[in-house]
Simulated assay, not measured.
Amino acid sequence: MESLRPYLLSLVLLIATAVLLMGFFSKNKFVVEGRTVLLTGGSQGMGRGLAKLFAQKGANVVIVARDVKKLEAAVEYIQSSAKSPQTQRFHFISADLTSSSENERIVKEVTEWNNGNPPDIVWANAGYSKPQLFLDASIESMRNQMETNFWAATYLAHTTLRTWLTPSASSPKDGSAVPTKEPLPRHFIMTSSVAALCGIAGYAPYSPGKAALRSLADTLRSEVQLYNGSRHYLSSSSVSPPPVKIHIVLPGTITSPGYVEENKTKHPVTHVLEEGDLVQTEDEVAAAAFKGLEAGNYMITTQFLGHAMRVGMLGGSPRGGVFGIRDLLFGWVIGVAWLFISPDMERKVWRWGRKNGVQSGAVKTYSK
Rank of each mutant, 00 (worst) to 15 (best):
H267N: 08
G209H: 03
V260A: 13
I246M: 12
S230L: 13
H271D: 10
L226R: 10
D277F: 14
I189E: 03
V194T: 15
A217I: 05
S176W: 07
S222G: 12
A195N: 02
V178I: 15
S236V: 13
V279T: 12
R221S: 15
T219M: 08
I189F: 01
E223G: 04
M190P: 00
K264D: 08
I189L: 06
V194R: 05
I200L: 15
Y227Q: 15
K245R: 15
S235L: 04
A177L: 11
I246T: 00
G229E: 03
S235P: 05
P208K: 11
I200K: 06
R221N: 09
S236G: 04
T255G: 12
P242W: 01
P208C: 03
I246C: 02
N263A: 05
P241H: 11
S207D: 01
G175C: 04
T270E: 00
S235K: 04
V279A: 02
E282Y: 04
T219D: 09
V178M: 04
E261S: 15
T180C: 03
I189P: 04
S192V: 06
G175H: 07
H187I: 14
H232P: 10
S193I: 00
A211S: 09
Y259Q: 07
R221L: 08
P241M: 09
P241D: 09
Y227P: 00
V178Q: 15
V224N: 10
S236M: 13
R221D: 07
Q280N: 08
R231G: 01
D218L: 08
P185A: 11
S240V: 03
I200M: 11
G229T: 06
L234S: 07
S215G: 11
K266Y: 01
D277S: 14
S193D: 00
E262V: 10
F188M: 15
I246D: 06
T253R: 09
S238M: 13
V269G: 01
P268V: 12
A196D: 00
A177E: 07
G202W: 12
S207C: 02
T265L: 09
H247S: 15
V194W: 13
S207K: 00
N263E: 13
E261A: 10
Y203C: 05
S235T: 14
E262Y: 12
P257L: 08
P242T: 01
E262M: 04
I248M: 01
M190Q: 10
P183Q: 00
N263T: 13
L213M: 13
A212W: 00
E274Q: 12
K245Y: 12
H267D: 08
P243H: 02
L278P: 03
P185E: 07
K181T: 11
A217H: 04
L184Q: 09
H271A: 13
I254K: 05
L184G: 05
A196S: 11
L234E: 06
L213P: 01
Y259L: 09
Y206T: 01
H247W: 03
V260D: 08
Y259D: 07
T219N: 14
T255A: 05
C198D: 08
V269F: 12
R231I: 01
P205G: 03
E282R: 15
K181N: 15
E182S: 11
D283C: 05
T270H: 10
R221Y: 11
I254Y: 13
E275S: 14
E223H: 02
S193M: 09
L278T: 09
K245F: 10
V260M: 06
S222A: 15
E223F: 00
S193L: 01
V224K: 07
I248H: 06
K181F: 13
T180Y: 06
T265S: 14
Q280G: 03
E282F: 14
